[in-house]
């Protein structure tokens, strides 16, 4: 989730608040193809990814593209909110308000590790997360296209002068982040169910994770995510489960107060970005 934020932020400096909806699209789409259309697993997976990619593409073409010329970041961020509301509405029409789920990727006995019970699905989630971090790290730091994406966010004009087609890059970043979000949604649905309005909560959590870890750093987002998750569970266990969601925001505030660049964020990069 947090990783998805980073992709778009890295290439456009926009914070896409509809990112949570991509996750929901992933979860619900997977349910639809798997349970309603009865496709075999790999095919359902691919179909879901395609749907999410198209959603990301449409979102960029229809809402961000026309605003790109104005270069008003705040406006674009607000548009992402409206897109998220729109997607939520559409999903509600299609799927109704009930939560959905489907069986985990692999059946089997949960593993017991140091007294903790870990289902196989959780292992899948962790595996997929790490795989995406590694791939995205390699993409942004080792390939020219990834660097071009970063370049677009630092200075779009300079990027154009380098012969980079900025509008294509922005589109690509939306597609990739939609796909990453959808994969996340596909992976977590068997554990935590998925309903049409789960997006905003996911977005807030993911956003906190991204900020806590340092915006633009995938490693950071994952670390932030784990940290939030652990603190949340502790709060739910020891204090009251009602405080669970508030804690994420509390941590976000504290990080912003004391280490605005995030735990993994470099101060230097933050400063240079502002210059």
């Amino acid at each position: 989730m947090g990783i998805g934020f980073n992709i778009i932020y890295n290439s456009t400096s926009i914070i896409n608040l509809a990112q949570g909806e991509f996750v929901v699209i992933g979860g619900l789409g997977m349910w639809y193809f798997l349970e309603a259309v009865k496709l075999p697993f790999p095919l359902a997976f691919i179909s879901t990814i395609v749907v999410a990619a198209v959603a990301g593409l449409l979102m960029e073409r229809l809402t961000i593209r026309p605003l790109m010329k104005k270069l008003d970041l705040l406006l674009m961020i607000m548009v992402t909110i409206s897109v998220s509301i729109l997607i939520r509405g559409l999903l509600m029409f299609k799927f109704g308000k009930e939560p959905y789920t489907y069986p985990p990727f692999t059946e089997g006995e949960p593993i017991v590790l140091f007294g903790a019970v870990i289902t196989q699905q959780i292992l899948w989630v962790i595996g997929i997360t790490f795989l995406s971090i590694v791939l995205l790290y390699l993409f942004f730091n080792k390939t020219l296209l990834g660097r071009a994406m970063k370049a677009c966010s630092i200075d779009a004009k300079a990027a154009r002068l380098m012969g980079i087609n900025v509008s294509q890059i922005v589109m690509l970043s939306f597609v990739i982040s939609a796909v990453v979000g959808a994969i996340g949604g596909i992976a977590i649905t068997p554990i935590s169910l998925m309903e049409y309005d789960k997006g905003p909560m996911l977005a807030v959590k993911g956003f906190c994770a991204a900020i806590v870890g340092g915006l633009g750093k995938s490693r950071g987002a994952v670390f932030g995510g784990f940290l939030l998750g652990i603190v949340e569970s502790l709060t739910a266990g020891y204090l009251h489960s009602g405080f669970k969601d508030a804690v994420a925001l509390l941590i976000l505030l504290f990080v912003l107060f004391f280490k605005p660049a995030g735990i993994f964020g470099s101060k230097e990069a933050m400063r240079l970005r502002k210059l």
Partner: peptide, 15 residues
């Protein structure tokens, strides 16, 4: 308008 948060080498590469 150099890419300030990228390294010198990455800047040249983007050229």
């Amino acid at each position: 308008l150099i890419f300030k948060t990228l390294t010198v080498e990455e800047n040249l590469l983007l050229g």
